[in-house]
């Protein structure tokens, strides 16, 4: 497999993420082993596996937030939309702009709903800040995309931290959208929510399908099955299987996969 950024064949252009022999160490502890993945553009891919198998680690190496920890070492390649994000000269700010991250616990900033939605946007357009009416349009568009507009349109200036968890999580997705990211990474975005909230956020994620490439980590088998088109199963830092979601749940290719989706790993 070709893993360098220069040689991008046409058939690879519709890949959102392509990793080649990705290994990652936290100090001396190896968390990822030879991860080779081709994740398609425009669809929802779910990432499943038992606790501690490296799902979050993988996500965090795609937007390069892992590097913040001084003791992380990476080997291998990660191409996002055909560009090697570990190439010299890559600007981290641009990487993070292009790749949005959603966390397990909703983490809106302690400012107004409107300011939350526009936070990233203003961050990336500092100096030439948009007109107020234009900002209003941008905020409205983002909030509509996450199905939150009707609920919050009358209280855009109240604190985001006063919203329910479900609404906070939607807001955390909304604030990524104004900078037009291509890829959304979601690390168990529903696991802090109640069943109703989970359903609502799942519905939203499904709604965003096609507009954005989405990679979602989940512990919830039903959710992976319902809400994703392809599915990756990881075990102890290695990719065991990557297929269409239907196939994985109906006819898993490996014994480990079958064991896991039937709940035999706990």
């Amino acid at each position: 497999m070709n893993t360098s950024s220069q040689a991008i064949g046409n058939e690879q252009l519709d890949l959102a993420i392509q990793t080649g022999k990705l290994n990652l160490w936290y100090g001396t502890f190896q968390a990822l082993f030879d991860v080779d993945l081709d994740i398609k553009q425009g669809i929802i891919t779910s990432l499943i596996g038992p606790s501690g198998c490296g799902k979050s680690t993988f996500l965090r190496s795609i937007n390069r937030i892992n590097e913040r920890l001084g003791y992380v070492r990476i080997d291998g390649s990660i191409n996002v939309f055909g560009n090697n994000i570990y190439a010299p000269g890559v600007e981290l700010v641009q990487v993070r702009k292009q790749i949005g991250m959603v966390f397990q616990r909703p983490n809106p900033l302690p400012i107004s709903i409107r300011d939350n939605v526009l936070f990233g946007y203003n961050l990336h357009s500092e100096g030439k800040r948009a007109e107020r009416s234009e900002q209003d349009d941008i905020a409205e568009d983002a909030l509509r995309q996450v199905l939150l507009w009707d609920k919050v349109k009358d209280r855009l200036n109240s604190k985001a931290t006063e919203l329910s968890l479900e609404e906070q999580q939607k807001l955390c997705i909304a604030r990524l959208l104004p900078v037009k990211p291509g890829l959304l990474l979601m690390d168990e975005p529903c696991s802090a929510l109640d069943p109703k909230g989970t359903e609502a956020v799942e519905e939203l994620i499904w709604e965003l399908r096609g507009k954005y490439t989405i990679l979602i980590v989940t512990h919830n088998m039903a959710q992976a099955r319902r809400a994703s088109e392809e599915c990756i199963f990881m075990l102890m830092g290695k990719v065991v299987e990557h297929t269409a979601t239907e196939d994985m749940f109906v006819t898993p290719g490996k014994q480990e996969t079958a064991d896991y989706i039937e709940g035999r790993y706990g």
């Binding site: 937007n63 937030i65 913040r68 981290l92 700010v93 641009q94 990487v95 993070r96 702009k97 949005g100 991250m101 966390f103 616990r105 983490n107 809106p108 900033l109 302690p110 400012i111 936070f119 990233g120 961050l123 990336h124 955390c172 604030r175 990524l176 900078v179």
Partner: peptide
């Protein structure tokens, strides 16, 4: 810490994070 994490993941620099949040 979650506030800082949110900012960094949106591409904010350390200083932007400090000043705004």
């Amino acid at each position: 810490f979650a506030f800082r994490e949110a900012c960094w993941n949106m591409g904010a620099t350390r200083w932007q994070t400090i000043r705004r949040v």
